[in-house]
Nucleic acid binder design. Structure first.
Lengths: 233, 233
DNA sequence: CGCCAGTTTGACCAAGATCAACGCAAGTGG
DNA sequence: CCACTTGCGTTGATCTTGGTCAAACTGGCG
């Protein structure tokens, strides 16, 4: 199906219309929701597929419908840093730069809505409530970035891994068990550690009875109190 | 002079009116500028004085008029993390949380404008242009936080120190020489290193002829190209 | 069954932390 | 004016954490 976005080989695969409930729903503006839906297009991505690349023009923003997306940056020397994981309902790619500083990739299969910036800005100009909402969203991202700076700046390996697990349990609304959609390598690059260190910490937590690991991607909480004692700021 | 802010022992020392040019000037809205100026109050702080503490109600935001402010967090076990240094013109304390997650302190003597959030929000509601400006400001902060995440997550000691120096030269508009207002301890806590490591890297840079250090707080650039080769992402 | 990618574990190494001593300049009080 | 203190900053010796390198394990899949 055709749509209004010109650039990029993948563009035509975006498909309209789609759901944008989570963005606007709480601002209680049905008409804005409908309008936003009208300017958005939907597309699915397969594992490791690029949603946008570093250097691409930064002319739209996105919302994850299902699956997981990683926002990351690759150094010339091979080092990689993952700035963020986005799950269903999360928005990403919202900035006011000319071009992308990070790339976005699907961690597994994922479905994503895309909204062109220009059209969103027009919508926002007609809808003062909406801008407050976008602002709040950005402020939330900023608060999250600051928490991550704390983690990366001052926590040791065990504290980082435990914080990560607790964050994932909270964000995925998991209580006893959790399936991590990302690989050890993704986790390592998110926490500023190596794969091996992540593995070793997880093994130690398992040995000490704080978690169970029935298979590599599933984590079960066995002693939340002990974990919180390690991971809380 | 009296003003409208109730809480906190320091409140009365804030003094109105003051300059808010940098915030609103580029939005080109003189009336908004004047209005903002009317709701702001000015106050000076001495070295290491607290502007707000962790846990304080988060009901206003600030702009540095002169001097340097550090935004930081102290762990129970004594670890400290500095999230940001703010110089003249920079805004800080802008969030939508109920209470402060970080504290703000004067690095040396500093003068600061304070704006209550409620009044700013009213102003913004009457002035759609202004909200875009606040949004842009937050997006800029977010971009900066992401750059710092990169530094903290994936750079070694030398890269961190060099990035820091280049950032300071750029932000202070210095070309050949720069006076750092903050201590080695502040730099270390900003970069996620120890004081000793910061010193050793600086000494190594001096030994290799990339910088000169006429006194502890003054840095002279001797070989910018070599530094950029180390510090650029 | 064998291969492959991802994960785990172990042995060793190095970057940076820790601990300790020393230097140095700016007060401070006699 | 000069000892003495005090607060940073610098340097050196040693130790620890996490990185590197290598090998083994595991589960899916042709």
């Amino acid at each position: 199906m055709l749509n209004q976005f010109g650039a990029g080989g993948f563009t035509d695969a975006f498909d309209r219309p789609g759901a944008a409930e989570a963005v606007v729903a709480q601002s209680g503006q049905l008409e804005a929701l409908v309008a936003l839906e009208r300017i958005g297009s939907r597309r699915s991505f397969t594992r490791d597929e690029e949603i946008y690349a570093e250097g691409d023009p930064s002319d739209c923003w996105y919302q994850v419908i299902s699956g997981t997306v990683r926002i990351c940056k690759l150094w010339a020397d091979g080092r990689r840093h993952i700035a963020e994981f986005c799950f269903g309902g999360d928005c990403f790619g919202l900035d006011n730069a000319r071009e992308r500083i990070y790339s976005a990739e699907a961690v597994g299969d994922a479905v994503v809505m895309r909204y062109p910036r220009r059209a969103t800005e027009r919508l926002i100009d007609e809808n003062p409530r909406l801008v407050r909402h976008v602002c709040d969203m950005t402020l939330r991202d900023l608060a999250h970035a600051q928490t991550r700076m704390l983690l990366l700046g001052r926590m040791n390996a065990a504290e980082r891994v435990v914080s990560f697990l607790l964050e994932m349990f909270e964000r995925r609304d998991a209580v006893r068990a959790l399936d991590l959609p990302m690989s050890r390598s993704d986790i390592a690059d998110y926490l500023g550690l190596t794969i091996e260190t992540v593995c070793r910490v997880l093994s130690a937590l398992k040995r000490d009875g704080m978690i169970a690991i029935p298979n590599a991607h599933r984590i079960e909480l066995r002693d939340r109190t002990a974990l919180e004692a390690i991971g809380e700021t």
